[in-house]
C-alpha cells in the first residue's frame, strides 16, 4: 500500500489542507526598529522584559506569543490540542518552560533555525491526518541567550566578520485548524541534511544554502510546479551571502527563482542602518517574518502563493570545537489562499 498523500521523494500534498486561523509575533527592540516594524503584534523595549535572565525573557516571549495567537484566533488555550515548539537553547528550555503551565499536550522540537517550518509541517500532518482540530506551531530565539550559548559574552570586545549574522530576538506562533478560510498549508517538502563541509560558524548562510537548494529543487521535482507558480519564495535565514549562493546554485541547475526569491534574514533588518552584517538569523527570524509580514500580505491578498523555506544549521558549540562541519537542513511549506 502506498501513502496516498505522498508526492515524489520528499513532499506531502494535503487532502484536507489545514487553515491558518491566526498568527502572532513579538519581537525585541532592534527588530522593532527594522523595516517590518509595522507587522508585529508587540515590540519589547527591554531584552529582559522584566525577567531576571535572558533565558527567562525568551521563555516569556514564547509564552506571550502563543497566548496572543490563541486569543487572536478567538480560542482559549484549552481548545488547543497540541503545541509543537522548539528553540535554540540547550534542551529547548524556552519552549518547555514557556508551555509548562498551559496544560496542553506538547511535542518539543529541535530544528535549529528551521524550527518554524518543522513545527508547521508536523502540525499540518496532525490536522490533515484527522488527529487534531487546533494545533499551535511556535518557536523563539533571543539574541542575548543565543550569543552566550553559541558565541561570546555580550560585553566581550570581539569583532564580527562580514558574513556573521544577527540572532533575532523574537517569537512567532501560528494557530492551525481543520476549519477556516485560509490561508491554507497545501504542501510540505521535508528537507534532508546536506553538509558540504563548511566549518565556519560565522558563515552559516553558506553552510545552509546547499540544503535550501536541495529542498527547493526537490519541491519543484516532486510537485511538478515551476517557479512561476509562486508569488514569493522566501528562505529562513540564509541572509545576503547564503541567499546569493542558493540562487546561483539553483540557476546552475536550471531553476531560476531570482525574480521571486528573498530571505527572511534580509527582510527583517536594514543592513546599512542596523549594522547586522549579513542579516538576521535564529528560529525567531523566519517565525516573526512569517507570523508578521507574510501572513499579513497573504490575508490582504498581496501574496497568494508562497513557498516558505526555513533553514537550519544543526551544529553545536561542542561539534564546532571538535572540528566537525555544519550540517544544514531546510524544510519547505507551501502556503496559499486557495485550497488546492
Amino acid at each position: 500500500m502506498t501513502a496516498a498523500k505522498r508526492l515524489g521523494k520528499q513532499t506531502v500534498k494535503f487532502q484536507n489542507p489545514p487553515s491558518i486561523l491566526a498568527t502572532a509575533s513579538i519581537v525585541g527592540k532592534k527588530e522593532g526598529e527594522g523595516p517590518l516594524k509595522h507587522y508585529y503584534d508587540q515590540i519589547i523595549e527591554d531584552g529582559f522584559w522584566g525577567e531576571k535572565t535572558w533565558e527567562k525573557a525568551e521563555t516569556k516571549l514564547l509564552r506571550e506569543t502563543i497566548m496572543t495567537a490563541v486569543t487572536k484566533a478567538d480560542l482559549s488555550i484549552k481548545d488547543i490540542q497540541y503545541i509543537l515548539s522548539g528553540d535554540l537553547l540547550n534542551q529547548c528550555i524556552a519552549s518547555s518552560y514557556g508551555i509548562r503551565d498551559m496544560g496542553v499536550p506538547f511535542f518539543g522540537l529541535y530544528g535549529a533555525c528551521s524550527t518554524m517550518a518543522e513545527s508547521l509541517s508536523l502540525a499540518s500532518i496532525l490536522i490533515d491526518g484527522g488527529f487534531a482540530d487546533y494545533v499551535v506551531a511556535a518557536t523563539s530565539s533571543h539574541f542575548c541567550s543565543a550569543e552566550r550559548q553559541f558565541r561570546f559574552p555580550l560585553e566581550y570586545g570581539g569583532q564580527r566578520p562580514p558574513t556573521s549574522q544577527w540572532t533575532v530576538t523574537g517569537s512567532g506562533a501560528v494557530v492551525l485548524s481543520s476549519k477556516g478560510n485560509g490561508p491554507y498549508i497545501t504542501h510540505i517538502t521535508t528537507g534532508k541534511i546536506v553538509d558540504l563541509g563548511i566549518k565556519d560558524a560565522n558563515n552559516m548562510g553558506a553552510a545552509m544554502a546547499p540544503a535550501a537548494v536541495d529542498t527547493i529543487f526537490t519541491h519543484f521535482e516532486d510537485t511538478g510546479f515551476d517557479p512561476d507558480y509562486y508569488d514569493l519564495i522566501i528562505t529562513g535565514d540564509l541572509a545576503y551571502y547564503g541567499k546569493e549562493i542558493a540562487q546561483d546554485m539553483l540557476q546552475r541547475k536550471g531553476c531560476d527563482i531570482s525574480k521571486i526569491f528573498t530571505d527572511c534574514g534580509i527582510e527583517i533588518f536594514d543592513k546599512e542602518k542596523q549594522d547586522t552584517h549579513a542579516g538576521g538569523s535564529g528560529c525567531g527570524c523566519s517565525a516573526v517574518v512569517l507570523a508578521g509580514y507574510l501572513y499579513h500580505e497573504l490575508t490582504k491578498g498581496n501574496l497568494n502563493k508562497i513557498l516558505f523555506v526555513a533553514t537550519g544549521a544543526l551544529m553545536s558549540p561542542t561539534s564546532s570545537q571538535q572540528g566537525e562541519s555544519i550540517p544544514g537542513i531546510a524544510h519547505a511549506v507551501t502556503i496559499q489562499n486557495a485550497m488546492e
Partner: peptide, 26 residues
C-alpha cells in the same frame, strides 16, 4: 545537490564569493 560539486569545490566556490574583512582599514 548540484551534481559533482564536492566539498572541496564548494569550499573554493564559497571562498571566492564571500566578502573579505577590510584588513587595511581594520
Amino acid at each position: 545537490m548540484e551534481q559533482g560539486l564536492t566539498k572541496k569545490e564548494y569550499e573554493k566556490y564559497v571562498q571566492k564569493k564571500m566578502p573579505k574583512s577590510p584588513v587595511i582599514k581594520n
